[in-house]
Amino acid sequence: MAQLTLMPHESGAHNRRSRSHDSSFPLVAAATGGRPTRRPVWFMRQAGRSLPEYRAIRADHGMLEACFDPAMVCEITLQPVRRHDVDAAILFSDIVVPLRAAGIDLDIVAGTGPVIAHPVRTAADVAVLPRLDPAGVGAIGKAVELILGELADHTALIGFAGAPFTLASYLIEGGPSRTYARTKALMYGDPRTWNVLMGHLADITVTFLRVQLDAGVDAVQLFDSWAGQLSPADYRHYVAPHSARVFAEIAGYGVPRIHFGVGTGELLPAMTEVGPDVIGVDWRVPLDEAVRRVGPGKAVQGNLDPTVLFAGADVIEREVRRVIDDGDRAVAAGATGHIFNLGHGVLPTTDPDTLTRAVDLIHSVDLP
């Protein structure tokens, strides 16, 4: 395929940066208790395998290669914004990008996910883990500047990172897992080594987020994708202190901070306690019930089941309206706002037109 050409629009990023995090962004308004101009919506994994334009651009490039190419990151990040008119772009990247940038030997294998060449399972392994130099993710900062130069004034840019527990699970297991047995064995059996590892990963996460924030992202999302494997007590004891430090160390940027995990209905109170402004909710818990669990004063994000998008137009409309109604009830119950999203990521075989129609419907429903 032809090589992408960087367009001369870098200066636009700096102009937009000066009014970044403005509540005129529907997403920022909903996240911070303001009145959005329309219902904000974006989709996790919106920049990805469901889009034919994404598959075309990735045809000759590996995942990690794409993640470190500012022009490719910019183009892929913008594709769903152009197609769907969502209210936020999310930076095209992967949660293991900062680990790779730090020098950890890993790859993202098609059909499998991240694979770690040398899993981390002992105190000695933890002791030799490299630190992340911000320069190692300088390409990501450059990509943010390029994206901001292209986005419309009403469209926010979300940066993201993996939370320490989820990063630890990949490092310890060596890749994806169903049981997380090795991860939990280290957590329970050697808490000192566990906490050193988690502290190290919190440092990496903070550095990665700061690079994105310094470049101008309007919000950030911390993915603790696999925290749902834990009990509330174990989450609070082994995980919460480290995630709380991540949120605390980026609080000074003044941007909305979103926290999300899968299967975390029982963890919603504990995940909210670590300091986010917005709590992501998967499809297993209605949004108004989520507010009852976490209490007032936080915005909620979610939570259409991604598989609903395969069920036909009538079902999609019914379920989208149900989530909107749940979101309105959540706000009435004390949530500061509702950001429409899926309960997890867009599935690869989703018809992109169903997402576009869902966005049109969401934007057409009046705010209460």
Rank of each mutant, 00 (worst) to 15 (best):
P8M: 08
H9I: 13
E10G: 06
E10C: 06
G12L: 14
A31P: 09
R35K: 15
A47H: 04
S50Y: 09
P52L: 10
A56M: 15
R58F: 04
D60S: 15
M63D: 14
C67Q: 11
M72F: 05
T77I: 00
R82H: 12
D85S: 13
L99D: 08
R100I: 03
G103S: 05
T112C: 02
T112P: 05
T122Y: 10
A127Y: 03
A139D: 15
G141C: 06
A143N: 02
E145C: 11
L146M: 10
I147F: 00
L151M: 06
D153S: 11
A156G: 11
G159M: 11
Y170V: 01
I172F: 04
I172C: 08
G175N: 04
P176V: 10
Y180G: 05
T183R: 09
A185L: 15
A185D: 14
D190S: 13
D190P: 03
T193E: 12
L201W: 07
D203S: 08
D203L: 06
T207G: 00
T207H: 10
F208Y: 14
L209N: 12
V211H: 03
A215N: 10
S225C: 11
W226K: 03
W226A: 10
A227E: 13
L230M: 10
A233C: 00
A233W: 05
A233I: 01
V246N: 06
V246W: 09
I250W: 02
Y253Q: 03
T264Q: 08
E266G: 14
P276K: 11
G280F: 08
D282L: 09
R284H: 07
D288T: 03
D288Y: 07
V294D: 00
V294S: 05
P296C: 05
G302M: 06
T307R: 14
F310P: 04
D314C: 13
V315W: 05
I316A: 06
E319K: 09
D328W: 02
A330T: 07
H338A: 12
H338Q: 11
T354P: 01
A358G: 07
L361A: 12
P368R: 15
